[in-house]
């Protein structure tokens, strides 16, 4: 795997990670991002992944990855154990996103969270025009078989971060084609034009 083939959102995440830091990737899949971070940034990385196939592939890459569940296993990590905790395209699939988010910033000094934006214009239009649950490139499953049980918009997420007392250090929106657009919290255009939201959060209490 070379860095050139890394997905655009993963590359953005990687850019936000400090070299030689300690990173926990929650929902790390086959460890593509962790491997990139270890090679390119000398990061001391750990991962959690739900699927046996993902864990097995990551372990075969020499990564420290455990089979586990963001909803149940984050509570076992000590506070402040990591510099950055990453939750990439997983928040919407957790049973208790609010609790998960709180744990991310208890375990880590900073958290990087990405998710599909349910506020994107195509989704809004789909629902308005056809009255059915939208199926798009970013959210390509039918309502009855989607793993995404807690979808939110960029504005919803911004509000939750505020409720939890988290500060948004950086935020960008992405389109499915990989067009990146940084935005400031409260920017309504990001919520309309971004197919994905990507946030760098820190704990106000930690600053």
């Amino acid at each position: 795997m070379n860095s050139g083939t890394l997905r655009v959102d993963l590359k953005l995440i990687a850019d936000w990670v400090e070299p030689k830091s300690r990173v926990l990737d929650v929902g790390c899949g086959d460890g593509e991002l962790l491997r990139h971070l270890a090679h390119e940034k000398n990061v001391d990385g750990r991962g959690i992944e739900l699927s046996m196939a993902g864990v097995s592939a990551a372990v075969r890459r020499g990564l420290a990855v455990i089979q586990g569940d963001a909803d149940t296993d984050l509570k076992d990590y000590p506070s402040g154990a990591f510099d950055t905790v990453i939750l990439s395209q997983t928040l919407q699939a957790t049973r208790n996103p609010r609790e998960v988010l709180a744990h991310l910033l208890r375990i880590g000094r900073r958290a990087i969270v990405s998710f599909p934006n349910f506020g994107h214009w195509r989704i809004r239009l789909n629902l308005l025009a056809f009255g059915r649950m939208p199926v798009t490139a970013a959210l390509d499953a039918n309502w009855y078989d989607t793993p995404n049980i807690h979808l939110c918009t960029i504005r919803d997420f911004t509000a939750l971060a505020g409720e939890l007392g988290l500060s948004i250090e950086k935020a960008v929106s992405l389109t499915q084609e990989g067009r990146v657009r940084p935005f400031a919290p409260g920017d309504a255009w990001a919520n309309l034009l971004g197919e994905h939201g990507l946030f760098l959060l820190s704990n106000r209490a930690n600053r």
């Binding site: 046996m52 864990v55 372990v59 455990i66 296993d73 990590y77 000590p78």
Partner: peptide
Amino acid sequence: IVHALNAVAAKVSFVEVE
């Protein structure tokens, strides 16, 4: 075991084989 190792930030991999 894994939880204990996580608590001390050990390098640990864990797989439950089906």
